[in-house]
Design a protein around this nucleic acid. Structure first.
Lengths: 341, 341
DNA sequence: TTAAAAAAAACAATCGATTGTATTAATTCA
DNA sequence: TGAATTAATACAATCGATTGTTTTTTTTAA
């Protein structure tokens, strides 16, 4: 009654042929005659045969599976990256195992270990915020499993990476504010040890410079860019002696909560202060006014990353040197920054 | 240079012992002396041994892995369900493979096939909207793989299920509106062939009845409850001759877009119209006013579902009859419905 | 001291599929 | 027709770990 799983041996026995022939037939090898092939396939269907991939993969030493590790699958950017990864992988005949590290290094290490133990052919991942130690990834690499890192910078990596051009995104966002007539533009920046925020700050500076506007140190406000930070930052801005008329925030979350605080203070967006965020959270298009922002094109990153990874999987023999790809972001202009129609 | 993966045989050879002893040592069996155990573990570490789960699982005919299939991992409800599933599974020593069907039956069938081929020990899933045919699930069941369905009703199922008490949620939401003094309460309902929406409608009716209020057929507005539907529904409501002063929407999305349409028409929420949604989307707490809603407690569903599933996995021999669990939802009261302070 | 019992390790089969090699059957062609 | 090809199939080893059985070693106890 139990354990009635059918194997190629069962098929072989009922048909009185060898299991190797069954295996070849099921893999459509041309070493089996059409007649026997049909016989075998029919019987397989009849018995409800289903290949045991554990056995198959073990023998072939290949799983046709890619491991995906992201901090949080629910975040919009990551779920769109996953879409891109899945689609690309599927088209190239790969399966995908999705995991979330929840921003915890220990979990990330466990996940990587499990993926390795399951012999995935490669791993594409965005590292957790706690990840400053890459032993787990080095181990993978040593075992010959290609690793591709996307979205988050990791300092001394020997892996291929796909990153966003944060500088360019920030440059465009700030330039857009300048074009809308903003004269005093504040920048909400994140933890200054993170590369992303350094780059976004540089882009902001560069845009000011290009338009011959002064860069003012005091206009750069640092925080963790969480919900609550946005409120505090907004209150800081309200206390400035000069009239701030534009804000470029390094993420949407802080921009949105700041915007709500401003509205409470009777400040009109974008008439009094024009705002641009970064990362295109789903909420940003729903709030009022809708927030202009930089889209990180997650699915494009996922697609390109997966293509790169699969290439590496296939060229395993050649010691492929790590590649770095930089993706161009795109500015989404919405009401929060549109002064001129 | 390549393929330098270490196996128990490599360890056995260097130490001049049998590989079965190595295996037992690595599994901490008490058939190996402490001395040899230590020797083996040290060598394993030194060589960077990592168990090949393909081989192990094949031999044991058990993967300690649960497959999870949901329509969309990015939806808040599902990602919280996944959290609950992962946590529970992990605590019981199970790994989890997460997949999304994207609401497509064909994809769902493929995923189930792959999971089956990889010999997961069980599957916990929420079926796609296209799934009216359960052959793929029946096949799994026949192979002896337990299946647990959560969140979405599936008509003639022999599987265990964990569902939300939609009736109760709707009843509480409507009762809350009545308690806030609403006299003419409209209900936004979804496709009437779906059990969830039938149950929510019944809950709405029951609440009216209990408070001796008339149920008016015309107050039930059907749609697919998408963003755009909310706008259209709001416009319908504006044309009513009677003054509508409360709305219970069968989902948050429609409630939110309706709310925005109302605001444009100069109607105050909750003073003129009080609103309650259903499903507690993340956006609902961010918009203004924040939307009262019914939380579907995804992580609780995930937890309970996983516990049930693992129980079935363990009792595979006994023909466990399908269990049905109904989870109580909870009403989250926010500004959109709060008239009395 | 030695037989019996217990502990430790070795032997060997197995999980289910794949694949190189050997064998048999069927074709081809001179 | 019969040797040479080629096609079709069978044989057997293998992937890496697990596990029941057997053998060897050590410990216990009379």
């Amino acid at each position: 009654m139990e354990n009635n799983t059918i194997t190629i041996h069962d098929i072989a026995k009922t048909l009185e042929i060898d299991s190797s022939t069954v295996s070849r037939a099921l893999n459509n090898s041309d070493r089996v005659s059409l007649k026997t092939k049909k016989k075998i396939l029919d019987k397989a269907n009849e018995l409800g045969y289903q290949r045991n991939l554990l056995a198959s993969n073990l023998r072939k030493n290949k799983t046709n599976t890619i491991g995906v590790v992201v901090p949080r699958i629910s975040r919009h950017f990551f779920s769109s990256a996953i879409s891109g990864i899945e689609k690309t992988a599927f088209n190239k005949g790969y399966n995908v195992i999705i995991c979330q590290s929840l921003e915890q290094l220990e979990r990330e290490q466990n996940l990587i270990d499990t993926l390795a133990a399951n012999r995935v052919d490669g791993v594409i991942m965005s590292i957790s915020m706690e990840t400053f130690n890459y032993n787990h990834l080095e181990k993978l690499k040593k075992n010959g499993t290609p690793v591709l890192i996307f979205d988050r910078h990791c300092n001394f990596s020997v892996h291929s990476t796909v990153l966003l051009d944060d500088f360019q995104g920030a440059f465009e966002a700030t330039t857009h504010l300048i074009n809308q007539g903003c004269k005093n533009i504040v920048h909400f920046s994140g933890p200054s040890n993170l590369k992303v925020y350094q780059n976004r700050l540089q882009g902001y500076k560069a845009a000011l410079e290009k338009s011959n506007m002064n860069f003012e140190e005091k206009y750069v406000l640092n925080s963790h860019l969480m919900n609550n930070d946005g409120i505090l930052l907004a209150e800081k801005v309200l206390k400035f002696s000069e009239k701030v008329d534009g804000i470029f925030s390094a993420n949407d979350v802080a921009a949105i909560s700041a915007m709500q605080r401003f509205k409470k203070a009777g400040i009109r967006i974008p008439e009094d202060i024009a705002m641009v965020g970064f990362s295109n959270e789903p909420i940003s298009s729903v709030i009022e006014p809708a927030l202009s922002t930089i889209d990180q094109s997650g699915s494009k990153m996922g697609k390109i990353g997966t293509e790169l990874l699969i290439e590496q999987i296939k060229n395993k023999s050649k010691l492929a040197k790590p590649e770095k790809v930089i993706i161009k972001p795109s500015l989404l202009i919405r009401e929060s920054s549109l002064r001129k129609r």
